[in-house]
């Protein structure tokens, strides 16, 4: 039996770099309902920013038509918070290689291959599922509990 979330949200927006800030704010506003610590909130914002940036920089690198990014959030009674970021882009051929620290396929720009490493270390759990030519979903899990003062 699965527990249903206390609250959830969904958002869709085009893969434009100006929306990286928007995505962070949406996720932060949602998670703020749990009264998170400043550090936890910053962790969520950073992880979401990484996932969304990857959609824009990598997933849709060769596309010119409408490129949607889908983001969902849910939190549960125990504070477990799940955020997903999905694209319909090129997909990832070798996920375990992609998540390796410092691995990047970007040559022209100034990427350092640390996005997945940051998501992993700022969340409790990160999972990537992907199909080449179909798209990628990143699932970020973090438990948000306010320390008792």
């Amino acid at each position: 039996m699965s527990i249903s979330p206390l609250n959830r949200f969904k958002a869709e927006f085009p893969a434009k770099s100006i929306n990286e800030g928007y995505a962070r704010m949406v996720a932060a506003a949602f998670v703020s309902q749990l009264d998170p610590t400043v550090a936890d909130l910053a962790d969520i914002k950073t992880a979401v920013s990484e996932a969304v940036t990857n959609c824009i920089v990598h997933a849709y690198r060769d596309k010119t038509d409408y490129c949607p990014i889908y983001i969902t959030g849910a939190y549960y009674p125990d504070g477990k918070t799940v955020i997903t970021v999905r694209d319909k882009g090129c997909g990832i051929e070798d996920i375990s290689k992609a998540v390796t620290p410092l691995y990047t396929t970007d040559t022209g720009g100034e990427r350092s291959g640390m996005g997945f490493t940051i998501m992993e270390s700022f969340c409790d759990k990160m999972t990537v599922s992907s199909r080449v030519g179909k798209g990628t979903t990143v699932r970020l899990v973090k438990k948000i509990v306010r320390p008792q003062s």
């Binding site: 910053a42 914002k45 990484e50 720009g109 100034e110 990427r111 640390m114 996005g115 940051i118």
Partner: peptide
């Protein structure tokens, strides 16, 4: 006030 891997690249 905010920095992700793009800041690292910068």
């Amino acid at each position: 006030s905010f920095c992700d891997s793009s800041g690292l690249g910068l």
